[in-house]
């Protein structure tokens, strides 16, 4: 199958350097060639394991991390906020 690697990279928010485009394209084609060998099974999906059901916790207010603890890892901050490039012109 032909893969539009530039389009997939764009959807993935990745930039592939021009000199690597061919390599990635071939590799992706091989990988997709491998994974496309799947049988078509009758469609009766059930996402639930009835023997081991999940349970949600009670929704109780609890202390969480402090703002300055979280911001310590941010690449750029200002006045308690994360700084990013301008998003609206």
């Amino acid at each position: 199958m032909q893969i539009d690697i530039k389009h997939i990279a764009k959807l993935s928010r990745l930039k592939i350097e021009d000199e690597k485009l061919n390599k990635f394209e071939t590799e992706m084609q091989n990988i997709i060639g491998m994974v496309e060998k799947l049988p078509s099974l009758e469609d009766k999906l059930s996402g639930v394991d009835v023997n081991n059901t999940m349970e949600l916790r009670e929704d109780v207010v609890q202390p969480s991390l402090k703002r300055d603890e979280i911001l310590k890892n941010a690449p750029q901050t200002q006045a308690g906020c994360v700084v990013v490039p301008k998003t609206v012109e």
Partner: peptide, 29 residues
């Protein structure tokens, strides 16, 4: 990068049923 792009591809419009859905059905099997 390869895995992110593979994941993006199998979930993308037009391919979801042929890849992701089939894989989930196989998981049940």
């Amino acid at each position: 990068k390869r895995r992110i792009m593979l994941g993006t591809f199998v979930l993308s419009s037009g391919y979801y049923d042929a890849y992701y859905k089939r894989a989930k059905l196989l998981q049940q099997q």
